[in-house]
Amino acid sequence: MEVLGWIGLGAAVMLALVLVKERLAGFGAQVPEDYAGLGPQFDLREHLRGPIKCEGVIYGPLGRVASRFTGDFEASWQGNRGVMREHFDYDSGNSQDREWRLELGNDGSIRAEADDLVGPGAGRQLGAAARLCYRIRLPKEAGGHVLSVTDWMYLAPNGVVVNRSQFRKFGIKVAELVAVMRRVEA
Rank of each mutant, 00 (worst) to 15 (best):
K140E: 15
C133M: 06
R131K: 07
L19H: 01
G82L: 10
T70A: 09
L132S: 01
G56M: 08
K140Q: 13
A36C: 05
A36N: 05
P32H: 10
L4M: 11
L38Y: 03
F42G: 00
V3S: 04
K173N: 08
V184A: 13
L138E: 08
N106T: 14
G71F: 05
S76P: 00
D116M: 09
G8Y: 10
M84N: 13
Q41H: 12
G171P: 01
G39H: 09
P40T: 04
G105M: 13
G108N: 09
D91W: 15
N163Q: 09
H87W: 13
G144M: 06
I58A: 08
R164V: 08
P157Q: 08
S148T: 12
Y154D: 03
G123T: 05
A66H: 07
K21W: 14
V83M: 13
K140C: 01
A179N: 10
P61H: 10
Y134E: 01
H87F: 13
E33D: 15
V162W: 11
P157W: 14
S109F: 12
F88N: 00
P61I: 00
N106F: 03
G79C: 04
H47F: 07
I136Q: 15
P61W: 07
V184Q: 15
Q78H: 12
R135W: 00
E185L: 14
D151R: 03
S92L: 03
C54S: 13
C54W: 01
A186T: 10
G8C: 05
V31E: 09
C133P: 00
G108T: 09
S109T: 15
R183L: 01
L48Y: 00
L132A: 05
V174I: 06
Q41N: 04
L177Y: 01
F27H: 01
S92F: 03
R135C: 03
G50K: 12
A130H: 01
V184K: 13
L19E: 14
Q41C: 02
Q125F: 11
G26A: 01
G10H: 04
